[in-house]
């Protein structure tokens, strides 16, 4: 009996500790989101270098436009520039905090806008090592969190948080994120596949300050350990608060975005 009471007490303490870890994890995620948002809208040019197992490279160029909305996920447009066979292909996403995203694709040769399924969260984005869910809008509601402790990333003291995707279409069992304590910006994410094996690592580098407020990386590199492939993403020509209207991020605007 005594042993059982002792065990019950231990379980209560353990449960309490776990609840504390969850709260702290969630707090860090919300703080990251707060620091990251408030820009209104931004544009950026993106160059992706896809590297295969043998080191062969191929390039993707695209333009990103993103607009924040009140109380819901972001609206965003990706316009492809290269390879030239997909030049002008444009994707529009209305992301939602918990519901699945709304997504349209514009095919310039047919001048056709197609509503497409957004269930393909785990699928690769333009043949890269980034899945659609890795490039989508980061919403704190998309995960459950746990604070794992602290660690350093290249000398920067970081919080280590674990996040578990809520969406059943996610390709991951969990992610571990290194969040710099001082600026609340991510430095590294480890992705674990559905079998809970380490699949990929994303590292951020070359953070720059924009509008005296927003830290954005110049580069992100995703390394896929299981496939032996990697993708480097380089950002340039960042522009914040460019007064994008809802009309600029509408289904009709797909036909004229570039």
């Amino acid at each position: 009996m005594k042993v059982q009471i002792w065990m019950l007490g231990f379980a209560l303490i353990a449960g309490g500790v776990q609840a504390g870890e969850e709260e702290e994890g969630k707090r860090i995620a919300l703080e990251m989101d707060r620091v990251e948002s408030g820009y209104g809208d931004y544009r950026a040019s993106v160059a992706m270098t896809l590297r295969d197992r043998k080191g062969r490279e191929s390039m993707r160029h695209m333009q990103f436009l993103t607009k924040e909305t009140d109380g819901d996920g972001d609206k965003s447009i990706v316009v492809f520039k290269q390879p030239r066979d997909i030049k002008g292909v444009t994707a529009l996403t209305y992301s939602h905090k918990t519901d699945s995203d709304d997504q349209w694709l514009y095919l310039p040769k047919l001048r056709r806008v197609k509503r497409i399924s957004s269930a393909n969260q785990a699928g690769p984005f333009v043949g890269s090592e980034f899945a659609y869910e890795d490039i989508g809008s980061e919403e704190p509601e998309k995960y459950n969190y746990r604070h794992l402790g602290q660690d350093a990333h290249e000398g920067n003291p970081c919080h280590l948080i674990e996040r578990l995707p809520v969406n059943p279409d996610s390709g991951y069992s969990k992610q571990v994120v290194w969040v710099e304590i001082e600026r609340m910006i991510p430095w590294r994410i480890d992705y674990y596949d559905r079998k809970e094996e380490l699949l990929k690592t994303l590292t951020y580098s070359g953070y720059q300050l924009y509008q005296q407020r927003f830290w954005r990386p110049d580069r992100k590199e995703m390394v896929n350990y299981q496939a032996g492939k990697s993708t480097l993403v380089e950002y340039s020509d960042y522009a914040f608060s460019t007064n994008l209207s809802d009309q600029d991020l509408s289904v009709s605007a797909l036909k004229r975005s570039r």
Partner: peptide, 21 residues
């Protein structure tokens, strides 16, 4: 020639429009 206004847009000239799903 496409002109974009506030809440409206016009396309004038030879163009292509696709309707359907």
């Amino acid at each position: 020639w496409t002109h974009i206004g506030d809440g409206w847009e016009t396309v004038f000239g030879i163009s292509k429009v696709f309707w359907g799903v």
